[in-house]
Protein backbone atom coordinates (compact mmCIF):
# COMPACT_ATOMS: atom_id res chain seq x y z
CA UNK A 1 0.00 0.00 0.00
CA UNK A 2 2.70 2.48 0.94
CA UNK A 3 5.36 1.01 -1.30
CA UNK A 4 5.59 4.20 -3.34
CA UNK A 5 6.99 5.90 -0.22
CA UNK A 6 9.85 3.41 -0.12
CA UNK A 7 10.55 3.95 -3.81
CA UNK A 8 10.48 7.73 -3.41
CA UNK A 9 12.68 7.49 -0.30
CA UNK A 10 15.24 5.36 -2.12
CA UNK A 11 15.17 7.77 -5.08
CA UNK A 12 15.81 10.76 -2.81
CA UNK A 13 18.71 8.98 -1.15
CA UNK A 14 20.38 7.98 -4.42
CA UNK A 15 19.77 11.40 -5.93
CA UNK A 16 21.15 13.11 -2.82
CA UNK A 17 24.35 11.07 -2.92
CA UNK A 18 24.79 11.92 -6.58
CA UNK A 19 24.04 15.63 -6.44
CA UNK A 20 22.84 17.48 -3.38
CA UNK A 21 21.75 20.73 -5.06
CA UNK A 22 19.94 18.97 -7.89
CA UNK A 23 17.99 16.89 -5.38
CA UNK A 24 16.87 19.95 -3.46
CA UNK A 25 15.79 21.60 -6.71
CA UNK A 26 13.87 18.48 -7.70
CA UNK A 27 12.06 18.29 -4.38
CA UNK A 28 11.16 21.98 -4.63
CA UNK A 29 9.77 21.44 -8.15
CA UNK A 30 7.76 18.45 -6.92
CA UNK A 31 6.41 20.43 -3.97
CA UNK A 32 5.46 23.37 -6.18
CA UNK A 33 3.58 21.15 -8.60
CA UNK A 34 1.89 19.34 -5.72
CA UNK A 35 0.75 22.46 -3.88
CA UNK A 36 -0.60 23.92 -7.11
CA UNK A 37 -2.84 20.95 -7.82
CA UNK A 38 -3.81 19.94 -4.26
CA UNK A 39 -6.98 22.05 -4.21
CA UNK A 40 -8.22 20.42 -7.39
CA UNK A 41 -7.53 16.96 -6.00
CA UNK A 42 -9.50 17.86 -2.86
CA UNK A 43 -12.42 18.92 -5.03
CA UNK A 44 -12.11 15.63 -6.90
CA UNK A 45 -12.26 13.74 -3.59
CA UNK A 46 -15.58 15.41 -2.77
CA UNK A 47 -17.01 14.60 -6.21
CA UNK A 48 -15.87 10.97 -6.07
CA UNK A 49 -17.21 10.40 -2.54
CA UNK A 50 -20.64 11.61 -3.59
CA UNK A 51 -20.68 9.74 -6.90
CA UNK A 52 -19.89 6.46 -5.17
CA UNK A 53 -23.27 6.83 -3.43
CA UNK A 54 -24.69 5.32 -6.62
CA UNK A 55 -24.97 1.98 -4.97
CA UNK A 56 -24.18 -1.52 -6.15
CA UNK A 57 -27.89 -2.25 -6.02
CA UNK A 58 -28.67 0.60 -8.38
CA UNK A 59 -26.12 -0.60 -10.91
CA UNK A 60 -27.25 -4.22 -10.64
CA UNK A 61 -30.86 -3.16 -11.18
CA UNK A 62 -30.08 -0.94 -14.12
CA UNK A 63 -27.70 -3.25 -15.93
CA UNK A 64 -29.40 -6.49 -14.92
CA UNK A 65 -32.89 -6.25 -16.28
CA UNK A 66 -32.38 -4.83 -19.73
CA UNK A 67 -32.44 -5.99 -23.31
CA UNK A 68 -28.78 -6.43 -24.37
CA UNK A 69 -28.48 -3.28 -26.44
CA UNK A 70 -30.20 -1.10 -23.86
CA UNK A 71 -27.88 -2.70 -21.30
CA UNK A 72 -24.92 -1.84 -23.50
CA UNK A 73 -25.91 1.82 -23.64
CA UNK A 74 -26.62 1.91 -19.89
CA UNK A 75 -23.28 0.24 -19.18
CA UNK A 76 -21.46 2.84 -21.27
CA UNK A 77 -23.22 5.72 -19.53
CA UNK A 78 -22.95 4.43 -15.95
CA UNK A 79 -19.28 3.52 -16.46
CA UNK A 80 -18.56 6.99 -17.83
CA UNK A 81 -20.08 9.00 -15.01
CA UNK A 82 -19.02 6.82 -12.11
CA UNK A 83 -15.57 6.21 -10.79
CA UNK A 84 -14.76 3.43 -8.38
CA UNK A 85 -11.68 1.57 -7.26
CA UNK A 86 -11.04 -1.85 -8.81
CA UNK A 87 -11.68 -3.73 -5.58
CA UNK A 88 -15.28 -2.51 -5.71
CA UNK A 89 -15.78 -2.57 -9.49
CA UNK A 90 -14.61 -6.13 -10.20
CA UNK A 91 -16.60 -7.97 -7.51
CA UNK A 92 -19.60 -5.97 -8.75
CA UNK A 93 -18.87 -7.12 -12.32
CA UNK A 94 -18.63 -10.67 -10.98
CA UNK A 95 -22.11 -10.38 -9.45
CA UNK A 96 -23.47 -9.04 -12.74
CA UNK A 97 -22.05 -11.98 -14.68
CA UNK A 98 -23.35 -14.46 -12.10
CA UNK A 99 -26.81 -12.94 -12.58
CA UNK A 100 -26.66 -13.66 -16.27
CA UNK A 101 -25.86 -10.16 -17.48
CA UNK A 102 -24.12 -10.26 -20.86
CA UNK A 103 -20.32 -10.01 -20.95
CA UNK A 104 -20.86 -7.28 -23.53
CA UNK A 105 -22.69 -5.12 -20.97
CA UNK A 106 -20.07 -5.82 -18.29
CA UNK A 107 -17.31 -4.90 -20.76
CA UNK A 108 -19.09 -1.64 -21.59
CA UNK A 109 -19.27 -0.77 -17.89
CA UNK A 110 -15.70 -1.79 -17.01
CA UNK A 111 -13.97 -0.14 -19.98
CA UNK A 112 -15.79 3.18 -19.73
CA UNK A 113 -14.97 3.12 -16.03
CA UNK A 114 -11.31 3.10 -17.07
CA UNK A 115 -11.28 5.16 -20.26
CA UNK A 116 -13.90 7.82 -19.68
CA UNK A 117 -13.66 10.06 -16.65
CA UNK A 118 -16.44 12.60 -16.41
CA UNK A 119 -15.80 12.84 -12.66
CA UNK A 120 -12.05 13.35 -13.07
CA UNK A 121 -12.56 16.20 -15.56
CA UNK A 122 -11.47 18.92 -13.05
CA UNK A 123 -8.05 17.30 -12.65
CA UNK A 124 -7.54 16.25 -16.25
CA UNK A 125 -8.32 19.71 -17.63
CA UNK A 126 -5.62 21.25 -15.42
CA UNK A 127 -3.00 19.04 -17.04
CA UNK A 128 -4.31 18.68 -20.60
CA UNK A 129 -6.52 21.69 -21.17
CA UNK A 130 -10.26 21.56 -21.77
CA UNK A 131 -10.15 20.71 -25.47
CA UNK A 132 -7.74 17.80 -25.23
CA UNK A 133 -9.60 16.43 -22.21
CA UNK A 134 -12.93 16.41 -24.04
CA UNK A 135 -11.53 14.78 -27.19
CA UNK A 136 -9.58 12.17 -25.28
CA UNK A 137 -12.70 11.17 -23.37
CA UNK A 138 -14.84 11.04 -26.52
CA UNK A 139 -12.23 8.75 -28.08
CA UNK A 140 -12.30 6.63 -24.92
CA UNK A 141 -16.07 6.33 -25.14
CA UNK A 142 -15.98 5.17 -28.77
CA UNK A 143 -13.18 2.69 -28.02
CA UNK A 144 -15.18 1.32 -25.07
CA UNK A 145 -18.23 0.80 -27.25
CA UNK A 146 -16.12 -1.08 -29.82
CA UNK A 147 -14.53 -3.24 -27.13
CA UNK A 148 -17.96 -4.09 -25.74
CA UNK A 149 -19.21 -5.08 -29.21
CA UNK A 150 -16.16 -7.25 -29.91
CA UNK A 151 -16.62 -8.87 -26.49
CA UNK A 152 -20.26 -9.54 -27.33
CA UNK A 153 -19.30 -11.12 -30.65
CA UNK A 154 -16.51 -13.28 -29.21
CA UNK A 155 -18.78 -14.52 -26.40
CA UNK A 156 -21.47 -15.35 -28.94
CA UNK A 157 -23.90 -12.81 -27.48
CA UNK A 158 -24.10 -10.72 -30.62
CA UNK A 159 -24.69 -12.58 -33.84
CA UNK A 160 -23.24 -11.17 -37.03
Amino acid sequence: MYKLYYIAGAAILISFLADRQKTINGLLIGWKKFSKILGTYLKLLIILSIILLISDQFIINYLGNQAPFIGLIMGLIIGSITMMPGFIAYPLAGILVARGVNYMVVAAFITTLMLVGVATFPVEKEYFGVKATIWRNIAGFIISALIALVTGILYGEVLI
Binding site: Y2, L4, A8, L27, I29, G30, K33, P85
Partner: peptide
Protein backbone atom coordinates in the same frame (compact mmCIF):
# COMPACT_ATOMS: atom_id res chain seq x y z
CA UNK B 1 -11.67 4.86 0.44
CA UNK B 2 -10.47 7.48 -2.02
CA UNK B 3 -8.42 9.61 0.35
CA UNK B 4 -6.48 6.58 1.60
CA UNK B 5 -5.52 5.92 -2.00
CA UNK B 6 -4.46 9.49 -2.60
CA UNK B 7 -2.42 9.77 0.59
CA UNK B 8 -0.64 6.54 -0.31
CA UNK B 9 0.11 7.70 -3.82
CA UNK B 10 0.24 11.44 -4.41
CA UNK B 11 3.00 12.76 -2.10
CA UNK B 12 5.65 10.21 -3.13
CA UNK B 13 4.51 10.45 -6.77
CA UNK B 14 5.21 14.19 -6.79
CA UNK B 15 8.61 13.61 -5.17
CA UNK B 16 9.43 11.27 -8.05
CA UNK B 17 8.03 13.72 -10.62
CA UNK B 18 10.25 16.48 -9.18
CA UNK B 19 13.37 14.31 -9.28
CA UNK B 20 12.43 13.15 -12.76
CA UNK B 21 12.26 16.78 -13.80
CA UNK B 22 15.83 17.59 -12.76
Amino acid sequence: IFSRDMIAILPPAFVLIGLFDV
